[in-house]
């Protein structure tokens, strides 16, 4: 299926439930344009664009860029880091994330890589912690160290 058509279907799939949601927005009396006016207008235009994309299939000729799984693996690791951050804590989890992230992105694990990744993990965590915690007075998640 052409990629723009896929996008069009996705747009309609997003617009329909959000439009239904606008029917349940709170309202105020004697207001000419309510809180739902603007989102409905946007959703209407967006749905029209979605329908146009479904109708046209593809807006231009290829070759098209493909989504690379490596990019999603990278952001997946990052999201795991984010999800665990509160529970495990910044000081414990960040060096692990930096080490694992660096090794996975390097694509090979040899002694030099392990040494480099370890140094970066420790220094990177230390420096960012000092800058944000001690320099900018940000209370970073303490997690298991609490």
């Amino acid at each position: 299926m052409p990629q723009d058509r896929k996008f069009g279907i996705l747009i309609i799939a997003i617009c329909v439930p959000l439009f239904i949601e606008t029917l349940y927005f709170p309202t105020r009396m004697y207001v000419p344009l309510g809180v739902a006016f603007w989102p409905r207008l946007i959703l209407g235009f967006l749905a029209a664009c979605g329908a146009f994309l479904i109708f046209r299939g593809s807006l231009d000729k290829g070759p098209f860029d493909r989504l690379n799984p490596k990019a999603f693996i990278a952001v997946g690791i990052a999201m795991v880091y984010v999800v665990l951050l509160d529970a495990i804590g910044y000081l414990l989890l960040t060096p692990v994330f930096l080490f694992v992230g660096s090794c996975i992105l390097a694509g090979k694990i040899d002694r030099k890589q392990i040494v480099t990744a370890t140094i970066v993990a420790v220094l990177g965590t230390g420096i960012t912690y000092l800058v944000f915690h001690d320099g900018l007075y940000v209370q970073l998640p303490e997690g298991l160290l609490y």
Partner: peptide, 9 residues
């Protein structure tokens, strides 16, 4: 591979 994880942190 060193720069990207650091930038994300």
């Amino acid at each position: 591979n060193i720069l990207l994880p650091l930038l994300f942190v």
